[in-house]
């Protein structure tokens, strides 16, 4: 939605990422010493399933865009802000929130 007649836009969104059947080919737990991957180590540390998980949540977004051309701008600014919340009750494997802040000129 555009705020009045300004370069400010805002909106909400829904995000769904389902990862399943994760086949970590570098991982070899039977080797000696076991060959551990970053994925395995992180998931193990946080106590999350290493083969499947999902992230489902809502986001609040705002963008300020005064660029003259989106593909090859000569002047103007772009500032973007996105907050994404992934609570367990919406189907996420773990509670989490993420923040995205961006600026271009």
């Amino acid at each position: 939605m555009r705020h009045k007649k300004t370069n400010l836009f805002y909106g909400t969104g829904y995000h769904l990422d389902i990862f399943w059947n994760i086949d970590d080919r570098q991982l070899d737990l039977d080797a000696s010493p076991p060959r551990i991957t970053h994925h395995y180590r992180y998931q193990d540390l946080k106590g999350i399933n290493t083969e499947k998980y999902s992230q489902s949540g809502l986001s609040a977004n705002a963008t300020f865009d005064s660029r003259d051309n989106v593909v090859n701008p000569y002047e103007g600014h772009l500032a973007a802000f996105s907050f994404r919340a992934f609570p367990e009750f919406l189907g996420s494997t773990t509670n989490a929130s993420q923040l995205w802040m961006e600026y271009r000129t």
Binding site: H38, I48, Y53, Q55, F86, T93, T94, N95, A96
Partner: peptide, 10 residues
């Protein structure tokens, strides 16, 4: 990730 835990690929 400003709170909670995100899975690795996310």
């Amino acid at each position: 990730v400003n709170s909670g835990t995100s899975p690795y690929l996310a």
